[in-house]
Amino acid sequence: MSRNLKEKFQLSAKEYQDMVQQKKPRPPLLKNMVVAFVSGGLICLLGQLVLNFFIGMGFTTQEASNPTVAFFIFLGALATGLGVFDKIAHHTGAGTAIPVTGFANSITSAALEFKREGFVAGVGSKMFLLAGSVIVFGVMTALVIGLISAVI
């Protein structure tokens, strides 16, 4: 495969990859994790406040979780539409990607992006471009775990 690397520079593909690894900057893992923990934590804290608000409105704890999730999906979609989500996410990483805000962003950004190809070939078919696999494997996992818990 890497005929040229070998012939011209006496390097195997493996040796070249090692050379590349040495040059690449290391991702700032600790910083990324701290920022993700704090930003994700803040979203969850806000989530708790919203949940408490709905409980205060007379919902049971279980009932209140649905409007809370809907609120954060709205928030993620709004931030995406306003064009700020990607700028925040560049810094917060997993902090905004893992909560439902990230899920909302993946769907809204795809829907916005492919609006130009029309509603059928664009929005409709491309909306779940990124979120599709989350939904498929999320549902599959839930099904398997549901079956296990039913058997036990």
């Binding site: 990324n32 989500f85 925040i88 560049h90 950004s109 992006e113």
Partner: peptide, 17 residues
């Protein structure tokens, strides 16, 4: 970006390289 990677408004962390 939209052809090779992600929708332009999709939020993710780009590696430094």
């Amino acid at each position: 970006e939209r052809q090779y990677r992600y929708p332009t408004e999709y939020g993710f962390q780009k590696p430094g390289w």
